Structure formats: structure tokens, C-alpha cells
Amino acid sequence: MYNYNKSDYAINKNSPNIVYCYHNEIIEITLDDYLKENPDKTIDDFVQLKRLSDQIYYEQDRAESAQTRKNVSICGFEDTIYCATQPLDEEWEERIIEVEERKFAWKALEQLFTVGGITQVQKRRFILHTFHGCSTRKISQMEGISHQAVAKSINLALKKLRKFFAAQG
């Protein structure tokens, strides 16, 4: 029998016979064997049984393939970043620092807008555009104005911020 990469499905599918694959042996049942053992059966019965056998092996092969893709070898797994999580105390410290940095950034931004002479409308549009990633068209839809007016407002805010930083630097 031809070795089809030792896949039970491939062995059965590529054989004209019905193949039973066990852990230690492979048994093939030919049409002649089948008809000899079952005198009341026909060639059509053998063909139907062969199709059923092919379908069963196919479904098993698909199920094994799907399961195998989920398996991960544990050899050397301890060397990867996937095996351990960060200790909770370190994670909490990082989150606290992140929150504090955000608070500081917003306070600095508020002061910058106040000192830079930026209006509340310019500030709102600048924040939406720069920090939230909203397009000028999206902002214009939200506020019910033209996108050119939004773009002009954002550009004026940028111009004032540049002027402020140029004076500081």
C-alpha cells in the first residue's frame, strides 16, 4: 500500500478499498472481500460504504486539524512572554502613573489654552481633531457647520500654539 504521508484520510481516500486504520495496523477491505463476506450486498452497497468511510475520515481529519491549530507546545514555553503575567502590584503602579500623567497633561493643556489665547470653540475642535482623531467633516456634522469653518478654527488654534511655543523656546 502507498504511504500517503500516513494520514488516515489520505490513505482511505486514495485507495479503491475501504481502509481501517488502527494504531498498530491498517486493514483494507476490497470489493471482492466485501461481496464474499456479504453475499446479499451489491457493488452499489460497497460504493456507498466507501463514500461513508471517506466522509468519516474527512470529518475526523478536519476535527484533528482544527484542534491541532489550537495546541501549543510547552517545550521552552517558560522562556516566552506568554507564560507569565505582570505582577498585580506592578500593573497597578503603572496604571496609577498613567492616570497621573493624563491628569497632568490635561492640566498643562488647560493652562496652555488659557495662556495661548485659544477660545473654547477652538479648544474643543482642536481636542476632537488631535486627540480623538475626528476629521473636520465629522466635527462639522456634530456641530452642524461647514467643515471649512472647523478646519479654519483648528488652524487658528495651531497657529496660536506655535506662536506660544516659539515665544517660550
Rank of each mutant, 00 (worst) to 15 (best):
E25V: 09
E25I: 10
I26P: 00
I27V: 14
E28D: 13
E28I: 06
E28F: 09
I29H: 02
T30E: 04
T30G: 00
L31H: 02
L31D: 01
L31V: 06
D33Q: 09
D33T: 05
D33H: 03
Y34E: 01
L35A: 00
L35E: 01
E37W: 09
E37K: 13
N38I: 01
P39V: 10
P39F: 06
P39M: 09
D40H: 05
D40T: 06
T42V: 04
T42R: 03
I43H: 11
I43A: 06
I43G: 01
D44G: 08
D44L: 05
D45C: 03
D45S: 04
V47W: 06
L49P: 00
L49N: 03
R51D: 09
L52H: 10
L52E: 11
D54E: 03
D54R: 02
D54F: 00
D54K: 00
Q55M: 13
Q55K: 11
I56L: 12
I56K: 07
I56E: 07
Y57S: 03
Y57R: 02
Y57K: 05
Y58H: 09
Y58A: 06
Y58D: 04
E59M: 10
E59C: 06
E59T: 09
Q60T: 09
D61R: 07
D61A: 15
D61L: 07
D61M: 10
R62D: 13
R62F: 12
A63C: 09
A63N: 10
A63I: 08
A63W: 03
E64R: 07
E64P: 02
E64K: 07
E64H: 06
S65Q: 15
A66V: 01
A66N: 01
A66E: 03
A66G: 02
T68Q: 13
T68C: 09
R69H: 07
R69C: 06
R69S: 09
K70I: 07
K70N: 13
N71Q: 14
N71E: 12
N71F: 11
V72S: 03
V72A: 04
V72C: 04
V72L: 11
S73C: 08
S73E: 06
C75F: 13
C75L: 15
C75G: 11
G76S: 02
F77G: 06
F77M: 12
F77Y: 14
E78L: 15
E78T: 15
E78H: 14
E78K: 14
D79H: 12
